[in-house]
C-alpha cells in the first residue's frame, strides 16, 4: 500500500495537529504483556520509588509507540515508516488513578527527501515536560 498522504501535498512546515493519548496503569500492564518487558518499575510503585523514581513510569517504548501513531495514523500505512528514533528526556509518571497520564504529540514536516520521503519531527509532552527529544520519523509518502 502507499501512504494516503501525497508527497506533492506536503511542504516543509506542514503540521500534524496535536493529539492527546491517555496512559493509565492498565495500559502499562497491557504493554508489559504484549512486549515482554516486565521491568517492575513499570507496574510496581514500591520498586519504582526504591529505585529513586517519582513513581511507576511508562515504558519508554510505549511512549515511542504512542508518538509513532501520530505519523502512521496520518499516512495510513504503518509499513511506510523507514526510520524512527527518539531520545527519552523525561519519564512519563503514571499515577495510580482513573486519569493516569496524558501524553500529547504533535509533529511538523522538517525535510523533504528524494524517493517521496519526508522527515517528521515530533514533539511529545507530558505534564508540561518534553518526554522525547530528537524524535524523528522518516516515512514514504504516496
Amino acid at each position: 500500500m502507499t501512504a494516503t498522504v501525497g508527497y506533492d501535498c506536503v511542504e516543509v512546515g506542514t503540521e500534524l495537529p496535536e493529539r492527546l493519548f491517555p496512559l493509565r496503569r492498565a495500559d502499562l500492564i497491557r504493554y508489559a504483556g504484549a512486549s515482554g518487558d516486565f521491568n517492575p518499575i513499570h507496574w510496581n510503585e514500591r520498586v519504582a520509588t526504591d529505585a529513586g523514581l517519582p513513581g511507576v513510569i511508562a515504558h519508554g517504548m510505549l511512549t515511542m509507540a504512542t508518538a509513532a501513531r501520530l505519523v502512521t495514523d496520518w499516512i495510513g500505512d504503518p509499513g511506510a515508516v523507514e526510520e524512527f528514533g527518539v531520545k527519552f528526556s523525561s519519564p512519563v509518571v503514571v499515577p495510580d488513578d482513573d486519569e493516569g497520564a496524558t501524553v500529547s504529540v504533535r509533529g511538523v514536516v522538517e525535510k523533504k527527501l528524494d524517493g517521496n520521503r519526508v522527515v517528521v519531527n515530533l514533539t511529545t509532552r507530558c505534564g508540561g515536560e518534553k518526554v522525547l527529544m530528537a524524535a524523528r520519523a522518516t516515512v514514504r509518502l504516496g
Binding site: 517492575p40 529505585a51 519508554g60 515511542m64 528514533g85
Partner: peptide, 13 residues
Amino acid sequence: YALIVHGEQRFTL
C-alpha cells in the same frame, strides 16, 4: 534491572 531506564532508541527498517 530496577536501575535501568531507557536513554535512546532507533530503528531503521
